[in-house]
């Protein structure tokens, strides 16, 4: 553009050096404001890719009744379209968490996605109940429950009981913590949740005061 020779009618040709700087300033100002307006115009289009009110309403908190859940059993509920596991852990299962500690990638869950009010090895508000999102942190498959410890599990003699991902073989213990040198990098996420009573749990809502 800068050294254009503009041919204008009547055979009058001229180079636009004289007007160049004012034109260039104007061009820059127009481009800047035009660009800003363009970004503004793009905004609703980009925003329309975000989850809609319907999707948000579908992702509303889910209430779970725990009264029917026996020790050692697991229940899967849907929250925001994802499986959320609730495992009622027996004392033996809780004991196994200590055993697995040495084999874990992140035993203290320092990198894990979990609310502040979930603490310790059990990763739970009440140690008896594990509540976690059942999607592998590798590529999002849902791991299978392998609660039986030892050789019986078919995984290995030293298997403390936990979860095995069918896709790429990542292993997690009964607190959803990932074992060392597995494809999955991190522990299973713990969703925000709160107890409204001893047997009623709300997933998707943070414990108040936390």
């Amino acid at each position: 553009m800068s050294n254009d020779k503009l041919e204008v009618s009547g055979g009058a040709s001229f180079s636009c050096n004289c007007a160049d700087s004012s034109r260039r300033q104007l061009m820059a100002a127009t481009a800047a404001v035009g660009g800003a307006v363009g970004v503004g115009v793009a905004a609703p289009f980009v925003a329309s890719f975000l989850p809609s009110e319907r999707a948000k309403a579908a992702g509303a908190p889910v209430e779970v009744d725990l009264s029917g859940l026996q020790p050692g059993e697991m229940k899967t509920v849907e929250w925001r379209g994802k499986p959320v596991w609730i495992v009622r852990r027996t004392p033996e299962m809780l004991e196994s968490l200590k055993k697995s500690e040495a084999m874990l990638a992140d035993p203290g869950s320092s990198r894990a996605e979990q609310p502040d009010y979930v603490k310790g090895a059990g990763r739970a508000i009440k140690d008896e109940y594990l509540v976690c999102v059942g999607l592998c942190t590798h590529l999002g498959c849902s791991p299978s429950a392998k609660f039986k410890p030892g050789a019986e599990s078919g995984i290995g003699d030293d298997w403390p009981g936990g979860f095995l991902c069918p896709c790429h073989g990542s292993r997690f213990d009964l607190a959803g913590r990932v074992f060392k040198s597995m494809p999955a990098p991190d522990n299973l996420p713990i969703p925000p949740h709160t107890y409204v009573s001893d047997t009623r749990l709300i997933i998707g809502e943070d414990t108040k005061g936390a």
Binding site: A43, P44, V46, A47, S48, L50, S52, E53
Partner: peptide, 13 residues
């Protein structure tokens, strides 16, 4: 109406 209400920016579009 979903576009007009629930989709972000939908009413403008």
């Amino acid at each position: 109406e979903y576009i007009m209400r629930d989709v972000p920016g939908g009413w403008i579009i």
